[in-house]
Design a protein around this nucleic acid. Structure first.
Length: 580
RNA sequence: GCGCCCGUAGCUCAACUGGAUAGAGCAACGGCCUUCUAAGCCGUAGGUUACAGGUUCAAGUCCUGUCGGGCGCGCCA
């Protein structure tokens, strides 16, 4: 409908230009906005205001000229000039009611753009280190990323979702070591678990399983461990223990602990995410980048172009040449590649897979990392603009009015699966998605858990369930339901009905805007608005007691509202229950 | 110290790429169930959009500065 209006106004502008009223070289970008108040009609445009200066005319005077030049069209029944020069448009009722037919026609596809009509997009999110279960801090990224992927898909893009598995690197080594140390404890060795190792119970559980399976095959006297780390600082001592373990256990023995930890935890993560309604198209392994030689290849390419140079025994990427604050190490002086080296290869790999756009969803604490990744893409001759990094602020948890501090290593956190069990994944998702992602967010666990009835999700779901209930009632009362499309829609002229029709019409625009801005929360607010309008309508009269013709029209509107609520919730990855 | 994000009702948050009188939910107060689900509806109250300047027809939105909060500034990930 906006498009139709735009066309009409372009004609009017063209006519004024032909009459020399307006200069030819105008850059016109008229905006049509839904009005907030009914007195302002259905749409408003600021066209005259923006053109006033280039046309050197008084805005209201110009608005009048535009209105006079506007071609007649049945879509518009009234035009008004208001305020400083807004043009308010009143749309014909028949056009408003057309939306119901559109909804019945498209059903579960209503509001959605043509599939695969847009771009080919990769959305990477969560990608937490597999060193422990996901906690509620990861939940926000999971909910946001998944909803965004669904939203972009709804907007017509071809979308793939991906989890980048950091199955290489020091953190994983520390985890493997932690499992081994716990194993040694279970076998009766007098060894301590350093404070900077992973403390969680899940580590101990894995160790117990391995003890049951391998007995004392992998034990080492406590004295050797003490000797290896004597006189070393905390982190250095940890590294010494890792080296010792790799040496004494051998490749295969070390792998027993390392792989057990990796696989167990990764499986747990996948299970938790599935329960949370998140499924990935791809689980991408960091180690595979080593195995395939892609890391080496990327570094070699950068060496060849002079973007990677040697200094002090290490190899540095010249990111300052591309706007970063300082150069970054890619190969340490001990020959080990840094995490950044993996990331260079990973992002190159993404680009090589042919996506039009790659979206990364990162915790906001990683924002300083963006310039160097973009720099690496540029150095490799790729398009940094094709990478979009969206940041998610960490949620600050509150329990009993007090801040809950969390850390994976200390093992003190509320897990995502606990949250799902206590409030349900629908409510948890909605809770997260409601907030704009870069906005700081307070997550009150007591509120989310104990007072889940206050969660706005139920308000929206209830509207859907209520409509379903109406139709069940109709069946019970043996009311013959007319084909919705055949109802006399002219009977829908009440205030509540007009409000609903306008909202239903807006659905596609909401998806479009939300997808454009990467903001699924816009959809949650829309759904609440739609639910509000429906609840108010519902309370205004008894639908099933109306005259048959009126009743058919009402039920057609209900059916359309139900469809849009279901479609919207589906994009958020939330269920639309038939009864509550 | 430098960089990025943020500051809106008592609390949690919106405000459609600068638009008309800044909106919801929760909390508070007052009403509405013999009739389709009260997880609901109707109403009241609540604001100098942190502060000070600037840009223009128009600023919560853009620019500068101040204050306050978060994060980052590793041969960690």
């Amino acid at each position: 409908m906006k498009q139709q209006l735009l066309t009409l106004f372009e004609q009017a502008i063209g006519r004024l230009q032909a009459d020399q009223v307006l200069p030819d070289d105008l850059a016109i970008n008229p905006q049509f906005e839904r009005t907030r108040q009914p007195e302002h009609g259905d749409f408003a445009t600021n066209l005259a205001l923006t053109l006033a200066k280039p046309a050197r005319r008084n805005p209201r005077e110009l608005a009048q000229l535009i209105v006079d030049a506007l071609p007649a069209d049945p879509l518009i029944v009234k035009v008004e000039i208001a305020g400083p020069g807004f043009i308010n448009l009143f749309v014909a009722d028949t056009a408003q009611r057309q939306v119901l037919l559109d909804i019945f026609d498209a059903a579960e596809n209503y509001g959605l753009a043509q599939p695969d009509s847009g771009r080919y997009i990769l959305v990477e999110f969560v990608s937490a280190n597999p060193t422990g279960p996901l906690h509620v801090g990861h939940g926000r990224g999971a909910a946001y990323g998944d909803a965004l992927a669904r939203l972009l898909r709804a907007a017509g893009n071809r979308v793939e979702s991906e989890y980048y598995v950091n199955d290489a690197g020091r953190q994983m080594d520390i985890l493997g070591l932690s499992v081994w140390l716990r194993y040694l404890q279970h076998t009766g060795q007098q060894v301590a678990l350093p404070g900077n190792a992973y403390q969680g119970d899940y580590v101990s559980d894995m160790a117990r399983d391995l003890q049951a399976q391998y007995g004392e095959q992998y034990i080492l006297p406590a004295e050797e461990l003490a000797k290896a780390q004597s006189g070393l600082e905390d982190e250095a001592a940890l590294d010494a223990l890792i080296s010792l373990a790799k040496l004494e256990l051998g490749e295969d023995g070390w792998r027993v602990f390392f792989d057990c930890a990796l696989q167990t935890i990764l499986q747990g993560i996948e299970t938790d995410l599935t329960a949370f309604g998140v499924d990935y198209d791809t689980w991408f392994s960091e180690r595979s980048l080593f195995d395939s030689g892609k890391i080496n290849a990327a570094i070699e390419q950068l060496k060849a172009s002079g973007d990677v140079y040697e200094k002090g025994g290490a190899w540095w990427f010249r990111s300052t040449a591309y706007g970063d604050e300082k150069d970054r190490v890619v190969i340490r002086d001990n020959g080990q590649p840094t995490y950044f080296a993996s990331d260079i290869a990973y992002h190159k790999d993404k680009m090589d897979r042919g996506f039009d756009e790659c979206i990364n969803i990162w915790g906001s604490d990683h924002h300083g990392y963006i310039p160097r990744v973009k720099a690496s893409l540029q150095a490799l001759g790729l398009q940094p603009d094709q990478l979009t990094v969206l940041l998610v602020q960490f949620a600050v948890l509150y329990r009993g009015g007090e801040k809950v501090s969390m850390s994976t290593r200390s093992g003190q956190f509320v897990t995502l699966s606990e949250l799902c069990e206590e409030v349900g994944s629908d409510a948890a998702r909605f809770f997260y998605i409601q907030r704009k992602s870069e906005q700081h967010m307070d997550f009150d666990l007591d509120l989310a858990k104990s007072q889940s009835n206050e969660n706005p999700l139920y308000y929206v779901q209830y509207a859907h369930a209520r409509i379903c209930s109406i139709f069940r009632q109709a069946t019970e009362r043996c009311i013959a339901l007319a084909e919705p499309a055949s109802a006399d829609l002219q009977l829908l002229s009440g205030e509540h009905e007009r409000t609903l029709l306008t909202l239903l019409q807006r659905f596609g625009e909401v998806i479009e805007n939300a997808a454009r801005d990467y903001e699924p929360h816009q959809l949650t607010y829309y759904l609440r608005e739609l639910a509000t309008a429906f609840h108010a309508y519902y309370n205004s009269s008894k639908f099933l007691d109306a005259e048959p013709a009126q009743r058919d029209a009402i039920l057609a509107l209900c059916q359309a509202a139900r469809q849009v609520l279901a479609n919207g919730l589906s994009i958020l990855g939330v269920n639309a229950p038939d009864r509550m």
